[in-house]
Nucleic acid binder design. Structure first.
Length: 462
RNA sequence: UCCGGCGUAGCGCAGUGGUAGCGCAGUUGGCUGUUAACCAAUUGGUCGCAGGUUCGAAUCCUGCCGCCGGAGCCA
């Protein structure tokens, strides 16, 4: 008999039908009425299925009474209305096949409380907990909706390379990729490592951004996006950073900064609505057990129009606030998270897009504004989390871009393909980057980013 | 990388110079259409590692390792 997922069993109105379910035991409670309650979970939803295992089962004494959390079972029986109060349906077992026992002395995920720090040492088992099961389902839903959003708008999904030889203007320290022997690399005459003899014939590393490659496809296909792993070798140890994370980077040709901000706004609202629609039970769990208020926050932001303000106006608002910031705001500074949160939480009381930052604090490829001081950059700030998206209109004028590169200490000769886009049919274009894990963090209310990716990679953690 | 905190039983924690404790889990028994079940008994510890001070160190000092939080960088 083919098994039915617990999500479907709990959702159906049918009663008295023969079904099969498989899952891992969460708890067992014995009744001296001569039967046991066995709650099983199969990951398809947050809720468990209560199995009634009658004492008349041939393996009741020998096996059922030895079931502990973590054991795997395959149950066939009748789906019936529950006599108890905690659930509407339950499975009255005709057979319970024990696929694998779980010795209670060894199994770390018993019924006792366990914290997230401890679970990070149990990455292979933590998906069996309510919290990480719920995170996995929300993460999946968000990933799926990222693709749906862009596909429905005619954006092309572009797979940019993981291994690269281009250094994206120091978006972060890079992980080197090499097949050379680290103890005895081949040397040039001057003593430096001879990368001509490395696998790719040059020095290579894991990508820190797919943006440059994304731009090349936008300047041929119109509207594109990337969604893939990104690597930063920064020694940053915070609850918001990973060494390996997934980034979403749309890029639009024939688009300016306004188009970019509008896309970012529509994108975030779509994701908030979608996760509310598809992950209701999981979000209620996060609201009750992880971060009270996270559900209402999502509901609010799914409808809220985004505020819009220029950097220059934002600084004036901060200066006029009279608030005692740890760092006093002034024009030209890179805003601190305390400033970003103040703007989103107290001034706009919702998401806000800050545009037109001073060129000195932004990257070389961002388009110079006519005022000679600012660039067409934007950050999307959310209440309580701060920056979630960073983007810009790209500099499409060849001479301006080359000058900006030289000002940043970059050699234009190293960016031939990038400059070719400006030599041959250059077009205004814009895009942004969104860190996927921060999105999952925001939607779930999970405090530490290491708990929203299955296998987190961070300094000294792999 | 900087600042702060923490490291004691399988898990969560108390213990601040004098015989190592509590809760949960586990085990055994009892009870029950139960549901974070409940009641009773019970097993379990080189107090992160290495030095030092002291009659005596989980406790004080030094170093190291690991983890957490905040900051910076960013996404």
């Amino acid at each position: 008999m083919k098994r039915t997922r617990i999500k479907e069993l709990l959702g159906t109105e049918r009663r008295g039908v023969q079904v099969a379910a498989g899952g891992w035991v969460r708890t067992r409670r014995d009744s001296k009425g001569g039967f046991s309650f066995v709650e099983i979970n199969d990951g398809s939803c947050l809720a468990n299925l209560q199995v009634i295992a009658p004492g008349t089962l041939p393996n009741y004494e020998a096996e059922i009474l030895k079931l502990h959390p973590g054991a795997s079972v395959l149950v066939e029986g009748l789906l019936e209305a529950s006599e108890g109060g905690g659930q509407t349906v339950e499975l009255k077992a005709g057979t319970v096949k024990v696929l694998g026992f779980s010795p209670p002395v060894d199994y770390p995920l018993g019924k006792q409380k366990i914290n997230f720090e401890r679970l990070r040492e149990l990455l292979h088992l933590r998906a069996r907990t309510n919290s990480f099961g719920a995170v996995a389902r929300v993460r999946h839903t968000l990933a799926h909706e990222v693709h749906r959003f862009f596909h429905d708008r005619g954006f092309l999904y572009v797979h940019t390379p993981i291994i690269t030889s281009s250094d994206c203007e120091g978006a972060g320290a890079m992980f080197q990729v090499t097949t050379l022997d680290p103890h005895a690399p081949p040397r040039c005459a001057d003593g430096t490592v001879d990368y001509d003899q490395d696998f790719f014939g040059r020095r290579t590393a894991l990508t820190v951004s797919g943006q440059l490659e994304g731009e090349t496809y936008a300047c041929a296909m119109g509207d594109i996006y990337t969604f893939g792993p990104t690597f930063r070798a920064e020694n940053s140890n915070t609850r918001r950073h990973l060494s390996e994370f997934w980034m979403i980077e749309p890029e639009m040709a024939f688009a300016d900064l306004d188009d970019d901000a509008e896309l970012a706004e529509d994108f975030l609202r779509h994701l908030f609505k979608a996760v509310l629609q598809h992950c209701g039970a999981d979000l209620r769990f996060f609201d009750q057990r992880i971060l009270p208020g996270v559900l209402a926050r999502l509901e609010r932001l799914a409808e809220a129009p985004f505020g819009r303000v220029t950097y220059t106006e934002a600084i004036k608002l901060l200066e006029a606030s009279g608030k005692a910031f740890e760092f006093a705001p002034f024009w030209g500074m890179d805003m601190q998270s305390e400033h970003e949160r103040y703007l989103a939480e107290e001034v706009f009381k919702g998401p806000v897009v800050v545009t037109d930052y001073p060129e000195a604090i932004k990257a070389f490829y961002m388009r110079r504004n006519d005022d000679g001081k600012t660039v067409a950059a934007m950050d999307v700030l959310l209440p309580e989390v701060g920056e979630i998206i960073g983007g810009s209109q790209r500099e499409e004028r060849l001479d301006v871009l080359e000058a900006a590169m030289r000002e940043s200490g970059l050699n234009p000769n190293d960016y031939g393909p990038y400059l070719d886009l400006r030599r041959y049919g250059s077009v205004p274009h814009a895009g942004f980057g969104l860190g996927f894990e921060r999105l999952v963090q925001f939607c779930t209310g999970m405090h530490n980013i290491r708990d929203v990716i299955p296998y987190p990679r961070a300094p000294r953690l792999c």
